[in-house]
């Protein structure tokens, strides 16, 4: 399916006066946000029923751009708030774009519990490997050996693999994409939103200003090349597993049916009311 043109997307889904964004030149968050909006459009969702729930940080700005109900709460708690929103009104489509610090560090427990609970929420991890807004400190996704403002001598902690973590915790849809592979990213997000259950899409997104310039990738082009080089599609990985060589695998990594929380709770309500036919 052809992607919606930028002008149409902005006209239909962006708040008037929202652009330009406050993000730095070369930032991947705009592309990631665009992919999310295009996915919403492709699915033909009722925009009145979409709620965007963000945390705090660069990704926390996403809500200010869009013409949906938006929730901008506290750092790390996006998924906990999203759980309350979705549970209170299961008719809503709840999408939670978060940064990797937000989701994997301060919100880490909420993330794994939400994956286990399998409520129909879509988590989009905009993974730029650093805390952009506060000045480029290291995050749980910062690779070992890289330099950040709080690892000036090189980072000595290993990073999380968020997709493996999501799968282990029980998420029923898990995918990885990048802002370099945009058409694929729109498909991955759309499939995640359509999936009935907790969906995780990790979006690798460059942060040239806070991360790249400290790690020999000073320009956006350098960083996009890195995304291209450092990832491999699921299809290619299956055909040539010996050639993966430490690269991150892009595509749908898990897609299974599982008991969805709000549906289970509706059945529980029927039992509690004594409706034996429920």
């Amino acid at each position: 399916m052809a992607l919606m043109r930028n002008r149409d997307m902005v006209e239909r889904y962006f708040r008037r006066g929202a652009l330009p964004t406050t993000w730095c030149p070369g930032c991947g968050l705009g592309t990631a946000t665009g992919a999310m909006v295009r996915a919403i459009d492709q699915l033909g969702l009722d925009a009145d029923k979409v709620v965007i729930v963000t945390g705090i940080g660069c990704s926390g700005q996403v809500y200010t751009l869009l013409n949906f109900d938006g929730f901008h709460g506290t750092h790390g708690r996006a998924l906990a708030a999203a759980t309350g929103i979705k549970f209170a009104n299961p008719e809503l489509t709840v999408i939670a774009p978060m940064g990797d610090g937000d989701c994997a560090a301060i919100g880490g427990n909420h993330f794994i519990q939400a994956a286990r609970r399998n409520m129909d929420i879509t988590a989009i991890i905009m993974a730029n490997q650093a805390y952009g807004m506060t000045g480029g400190q290291y995050s749980p996704l910062t690779p070992m050996g890289s330099f950040t403002s709080t690892s000036p001598y090189g980072h000595i902690e290993p990073p999380f693999d968020m997709c493996a973590l999501a799968i282990a915790a029980g998420a029923t849809y898990v995918a990885r994409g990048t802002v370099y592979h945009t058409q694929e990213l729109v498909r991955l997000i759309a499939r995640g939103i359509a999936h009935r259950g907790f969906s995780v899409i990790e979006v690798l997104a460059p942060c040239p200003v806070q991360f790249g310039r400290r790690n020999a990738m000073a320009t956006p082009v350098d960083m996009f090349r890195q995304l291209q080089r450092a990832t491999v599609s699921v299809r290619e990985a299956e055909l040539h597993p010996e050639a993966i060589g430490g690269r991150a695998v892009r595509g749908v990594l898990r897609e299974v049916e599982g008991p969805e929380f709000t549906a289970e709770y509706e059945a529980l309500i029927r039992r509690a009311k004594g409706d034996t036919h429920g």
């Binding site: 929730f71 759980t83 309350g84 929103i85 549970f87 809503l92 519990q113 509690a272």
Partner: peptide, 26 residues
């Protein structure tokens, strides 16, 4: 549940309070 209401035990009190606020907005 018998009143059609929603109960959830969250992973901690940070999440409990966040969920309460989310439900209130919904």
């Amino acid at each position: 549940p018998a009143l059609g209401g929603k109960f959830i035990q969250m992973e901690d009190e940070l999440a409990s309070m966040a969920a309460v606020v989310g439900a209130s907005l919904a």
